[in-house]
């Protein structure tokens, strides 16, 4: 009796376990169905490597958007990763536990603040500051990177802190017993032990940055050009889709789905590389 019940439950759980995969496939099918024939028609090279985006004239080059997405994400990581990891290390290794117990939840609240609020602060505080201090339109790559960098902080901090906390205490005690200072024990032992987890934290942060749409639309200026400086307006892939989806018909709409395909593939590649890196580390152990 128990045996069959348990078996039934096992099958049920297995079915549930495929929900995520099924959803992913559904999403892929629906996006690819619209986008791939379009890319085939326009031509791979003309779509990916042309800088000419004029849907009404039949030009669909998304090169500037690809560059912008990558640069904005990179910028966000330059802001977010060092700050986030430093914060996690400090909270976990240098501060008494009861203080961390107050500060960590406080920082996790940042994660709950909606992206549109960050975007709004970007528009009313950061962009005018950039415009008056450095010139240019203010709504720029710099503004987008700063806002996104702050937005990914909670993700990075929260996961990194958990990773560091999971490093066995024996590692710390061992290092300290050998006469290492706190900092030596951190960068020689603990960061190494937690490296794969921290990489995962940063990758998750990057995922959030590259996928963010509304905050970017608000602060990046959405100009489909290849930026010459960090003060130029840029348009990311996500922003392009969100801004034009409402007004797109026919080939233009398919082009936006094709951008979706590119985003999708970029993220798949990205994820695979990250997973491989993590796996390699574990294999090397």
């Amino acid at each position: 009796m128990h045996q069959t019940g348990d078996k039934l439950i096992k099958w049920l759980l297995m079915a549930l376990a495929f929900t995520a995969l099924t959803s992913l496939l559904l999403i892929a099918i629906f996006i690819f169905k619209e986008g791939v024939p379009f890319i085939a028609r326009v031509g791979f090279k003309d779509f990916l490597l042309s800088s000419d985006w004029q849907p009404q004239a039949g030009h669909f080059g998304i090169y500037p958007m690809i560059v912008a997405s990558l640069l904005v994400t990179l910028g966000a990581m330059l802001v977010g990763a060092p700050l986030g990891i430093a914060c996690a290390v400090f909270l976990n290794e240098f501060v008494p536990k009861h203080v961390t117990r107050i500060i960590k939840p406080t920082i996790e609240l940042l994660a709950g603040i909606p992206s549109v609020v960050y975007g709004f602060i970007g528009v009313v505080v950061v962009a005018p500051l950039i415009r008056s201090q450095f010139g240019g339109p203010g709504l720029s790559m710099l503004c987008a990177s700063l806002i996104l960098g702050v937005m990914v902080l909670p993700t990075i901090i929260s996961i990194s802190t958990d990773v560091l906390a999971s490093v066995p205490n024996a590692f710390r005690e061992g290092a300290l017993a050998l006469g290492a200072t706190r900092w030596q024990s951190v960068h020689m032992v603990i960061l190494k032990a937690g490296r794969s987890g921290i990489v995962a934290a940063v990758i998750l942060g990057m995922g959030r940055a590259i996928g963010e749409t509304m905050a970017v639309i608000m602060v990046a200026g959405n100009t489909p050009q290849i930026p010459h400086s960090v003060l130029d307006s840029v348009c990311t892939l996500t922003a392009k889709i969100a801004i034009e989806m409402g007004s797109a018909t026919g080939a233009h709409r398919q082009a936006l789905f094709a951008i979706g395909v590119v985003l999708f593939i970029m993220i798949m590649m990205f994820n695979s590389i990250a997973m491989m890196a993590i796996k390699k580390r574990f294999a090397g152990k």
Binding site: A20, S23, I267
Partner: peptide, 22 residues
């Protein structure tokens, strides 16, 4: 399953929006 979950996690919300709409 794990790969699917990881990929799903990386998908931008705008794509979820497009998919949900379609």
């Amino acid at each position: 399953i794990r790969f699917g979950t990881d990929c799903l996690a990386g998908i931008p919300s705008i794509i979820f929006g497009l998919f949900g709409f379609i």
